[in-house]
Structure formats: C-alpha cells, structure tokens
C-alpha cells in the first residue's frame, strides 16, 4: 500500500512563496498528474515528495509513514528526471542495476531483474552500451527502466517526455501508460502538456501560482473546470468567456441572447467550449475573423460583441472571414464563473 498524503505543505524560497498550503491525497496505484504552466510549483511539489527539497511547512506521508524528514533513499520512491540523468560512466546494464546494487541485492537476482525490466522497456539489445551511445528516446527508456527496476512504492516523473520529439513522445506516452498500469505502482507525473495529462492521468491536479486549483479526473477537469483558470488553461483552444447580466429568476442575458443559469444576482461570466457550438437559427451572433481549416474540423475565430470567441465547426461548412454566424451553445455544456472569485458557479 502506498497512498500519498500531502498535508498543508508550503514552500518558500526567501521571500518567494513557491507553494501555498498544498493538500493532496493520491490513492494506492493511482496515476496522478500535476499539470500547470512553468513556475506554478508543480516540480517543487514533486521534489518535496521525493525528498530533494524540504517543505517549509506541512507533512508528507507515503503509506503509513511520515517521510518529510527522511532522505530520498529511505522513502521507497524512484524518480525519472527531465534530462534522464543516466550515469555516463556506467553501461545501461549497470545503470539499471545501480539501485539494486546499492540495496545489496544478490548478483543473480540483479541480472534477472535488470533483464526483465530491460525487456519491458525494449532496450535489452542496448545493455552493454554507454549513455553517450544512446539516442534521447533510448536514454529515456533507460531512465524509466532504472526507476522501475527498484520496484518502488511510488514512481515520480518530472516532465519525462518533454525532451523527446513529437512522434517519439506519442509512442512513449502510450508505452509508459501500459507499463505503469502493469507495475501497479503509485505514480506522480509532472507535465505542462495538457494532452499528456489527459491521456495518462487517473486524476489531474491543475496547479496555478503555487496552489492546486482543481484535482479531479481528466474528463471532470475538462467538462467542469472548478475555476476560470482551469477553463482557460485546459482545452485547445480553451473555453470562450462572455460577460453575462442577470434578469432575475436564473435568466441571463449574454450578447443579446437569453440563457438559463444560476439563480444569483451577481454579474457572472458565461463560458462555453469551442466544440460545443454549432450553427443554428437561434444563437450568438458572431462575425468570423480568421478561418483555419484543420482537416478534422474548422477552427473559426470570431468576434462576439467585441470579445474574441472561437468555434470548432464541421469541416464541411464553408465559412469566409466577414461572414456572420449564428452559433448555438449546447445548453448542458454551458458553465458559469464568478469574475470576482474566479470560481465556478453552479
């Protein structure tokens, strides 16, 4: 059992507050992705869990042990680094065996474990090579194999795919998901790539300015963003926002159209995903500005009452810049945000 519990963890670097009182529970064998833009504190949080950084406040629990004052090697974790950190003076075999040898494991057992892990990562033909003779993708595989060979309770990954080219990243992503699911290890994975996060995660923790804004399943984060930041960060292109004014009784006026919404009197923001819009007789009047045919669909950037507004439409449609479109939002996909608190309003 290796659930992870993070209680009120804060981190300050001098006057700079990198993390504000983080609370997070990761279940045993869960794949948790920390997602956020660079500088949001996701790597700092991961390094605190790994023991490479000490929290200024708070507690970190792995399983039923409090670990925040233990050295990295006593925490039952393994880590995969962004730049792979494959030891250049050791062969691939010795790299994968490194942790096992440190644990004084029997020689025959080491060989067996290394060979099995290498096979799992498809690098069994590289075992005699040095890291200087490997490509980026191969080094990545060695780094993951080295972590897996430890059979850790928790595997921590810091943007492990960000240095690979796009095609290789796609391939490694699918492979990582399969391998980690099979290893039954609890995983925490840091990335700034939302597609990576969506495809890998059991749950995503979206981080922003040292706080976890939302921790939920990928589809929940996508459909029901807890805050305006999540809505504007997740999705490509992200959600559209328009100011809304209340008519009372949950009736809201948005760009001249009336929608059903929350029963509050405060001014709110109306939000809709670009792909939840379709041309109809009744709807938001939008002037097309830029039309981008992307093959699978048509991305149209329009203007709704002076605000930029994007719609993902069927690629069969013919739209020219200057055309006036009537776009109907799918009613159950409309979301509302309080511009003051930036939180979602149900």
């Amino acid at each position: 059992m290796a659930q992870i519990r993070i209680k009120n963890v804060a981190k300050r670097f001098g006057a700079y507050q990198a993390l504000h009182s983080i609370n997070l529970d990761v279940a045993d064998q869960e794949f948790m992705v920390l997602l956020g833009a660079s500088g949001c504190g996701k790597t700092t949080l991961l390094r605190i869990i790994a023991g490479l950084e000490t929290p200024s406040e708070g507690e970190v629990w792995i399983g039923d042990r409090r670990v925040d004052h233990l050295a990295p090697r006593d925490r039952g974790i393994a880590m995969v680094f962004q730049n792979y950190a494959v030891f250049p003076h050791l062969t691939v075999f010795e790299n994968i065996a490194f942790g096992l040898r440190m644990a004084k494991m029997d020689n025959a057992l080491v060989t067996k474990r290394v060979e099995r892990t290498a096979e799992l990562m498809h690098i069994e033909q590289l075992l005699k090579r040095y890291s200087g003779e490997l490509s980026g993708g191969q080094r990545q595989r060695v780094a993951v194999a080295r972590a897996l060979a430890m059979e850790p309770d928790v595997i921590l990954m810091d943007e492990p795919l960000s240095n690979l080219d796009a095609l290789l990243r796609l391939e490694m992503r699918a492979e990582l998901k399969g391998v980690l699911a099979e290893s039954k290890t609890t995983a925490i994975y840091v990335t700034h790539d939302q597609v990576e996060a969506m495809s890998l995660a059991d749950r995503i923790s979206v981080m922003h300015q040292g706080r976890i804004v939302q921790a939920a399943s990928p589809i929940e984060v996508y459909r029901n963003p807890a805050a305006r930041f999540v809505a504007s960060f997740i999705g490509n292109p992200p959600m559209n926002f328009l100011p809304a004014t209340s008519h009372g009784n949950g009736q809201w006026s948005v760009a001249g159209q009336t929608f059903n919404g929350p029963a509050t009197q405060k001014p709110l923001e109306f939000a809709i995903r670009p792909e939840d819009l379709s041309p109809a007789d009744q709807g938001l009047k939008a002037t097309a500005r830029v039309v981008e045919p992307l093959g699978a669909h048509l991305l149209v950037t329009c203007d709704v009452e002076g605000a930029s507004f994007r719609a993902v439409l069927d690629s069969d449609l013919t739209v020219r810049p200057g055309d006036i479109l009537t776009l109907a939002p799918q009613p159950d996909r409309i979301r509302w945000f309080d511009p003051e608190t930036t939180q979602a309003v149900a």
């Binding site: 790994a50 023991g51 490479l52 050295a71 990295p72 090697r73 974790i77 393994a78 880590m79 680094f81 962004q82 730049n83 950190a85 030891f87 003076h89 490194f98 942790g99 440190m102 644990a103 080295r146 430890m150 921590l156």
Partner: peptide, 20 residues
Amino acid sequence: ELEEAAWTLGCTRFTAFTKV
C-alpha cells in the same frame, strides 16, 4: 540531477559522491 538520481536510488550524499 546525476547526484539526485543517485540519492533516490539508495545513495547517501557521500556514496553518491564516490559512486557517481
């Protein structure tokens, strides 16, 4: 990172130094 990797793989600060 090479040292940090060694720490997570079971090294103390000193053994990470001597081994890596």
